[in-house]
Amino acid sequence: MSSIPQPVPPSWKDLGKSSNDLLGKDFPIFGTSLEVKTKTPNGVTFKVAGSRDAKSNAIAGDLEGKYVDPKNGLTFTQTWTTTNILRAQVELDNQVAQGLKLDLNTSLLPEKGTKAAVFNATYKQPAVHTRAALDFFKGPTFTADAVLGRDGFLLGGEASYDVTEGQIKRYAAALGYSAPDYAVTFHGLGNLSTYSAGYYHRVSRDVEAGARAVYDTKAATGGVSLEVGTKVYLDPTAFWKAKINSAGVLVLGYTQSLRPGVKSSFGLAIDTQKINDATAATAAHKIGAHFVFEG
């Protein structure tokens, strides 16, 4: 009797992605941001992104150009930020071996002469997803992670090794289960000093729910921080999101696709413990918006 083919499990960084996206995305509460994407006939994509921080009024932005050659599995991305940081990324996918992706990330800050270069190798096949990264200028540091999956069960781990000092600087582990309509993930991070649990459930076609609990053994306050949220689709072009945490902060988000290629999102955060405190209300409550134009 032949065994059931196993799917490729998510990468280490994507373990718990469903609950993380539900509780972390589409809540633009820290100011106003704008994103414009265009694509030329020869396949070059340009993206201009800018944001204004509501607290400091600081404006930041970046210009990104990306060229994709699907035939040869090559992707080249160049980014220039308003802080004068130059970034470049070269990706080569499924060319050396099936399931193997190689990429090199570099960055340069000319004013300070600061530079960085990280080489990544990702290999994925049914039931296994691994990655290795070498940071040439920090350490150098070698980082490796792997996720194994079978019948919905997921087991992952990560470790970072400082080549110069000859010792492991960071390690973490995770365990999870993923089904079509729900997922549960447990993480032990920061050398197993911080523990988190995430839960995601697609209740129906129009409703999603999730929760996340975090326990930091080194935190002075102690206890477990908890966050629960939901997402409700009004129609194929609009949805509401809401979440609240154990500190009493309620966050609301609304996203609307105005037309193909045009999307707007609005966010509002309310500290429910300071609603009646007029002095602290201004600093405690936040509001923001995000707009995307894609052509």
Rank of each mutant, 00 (worst) to 15 (best):
K218G: 03
V251Q: 10
L102K: 04
S204R: 11
G152P: 04
K138A: 15
I59D: 13
A289C: 11
I275L: 12
P140A: 03
I275R: 08
D235N: 14
Q6C: 05
Q256A: 07
A172E: 11
S19T: 07
V90W: 09
A281N: 13
I244H: 06
K101T: 15
Y182H: 04
A117R: 06
S178P: 02
S257E: 11
R202H: 12
Q89W: 11
E111I: 12
F137T: 02
S246N: 03
Q273Y: 10
R87I: 03
L108Q: 09
A121W: 00
A213F: 04
P180Y: 08
I270A: 12
S160C: 13
A238Q: 05
T114A: 15
V163L: 15
K138M: 06
V224D: 05
S18H: 08
I85G: 06
G261W: 02
R202W: 11
L23C: 00
T194A: 01
T282D: 07
G288N: 02
G253D: 08
V163P: 14
G156K: 00
L23A: 00
Q89I: 11
S264A: 15
Y171V: 02
F46D: 00
T79G: 02
L34C: 09
G176R: 01
G139D: 04
N20G: 06
I287K: 04
V90D: 09
V251C: 12
G156E: 01
T221K: 08
G288M: 02
K39W: 11
F119N: 09
K47L: 10
E35G: 13
V90H: 15
K138D: 07
Y177E: 14
L104W: 09
S18N: 13
L92H: 14
T143L: 02
D181I: 12
A289E: 12
L154E: 02
A220S: 14
V163S: 13
K124Q: 13
L192V: 01
G43L: 02
V184M: 05
K231S: 07
A146I: 08
A174I: 01
S257K: 15
G295Q: 08
E208P: 05
L15T: 01
N72V: 15
Q95H: 15
I59F: 13
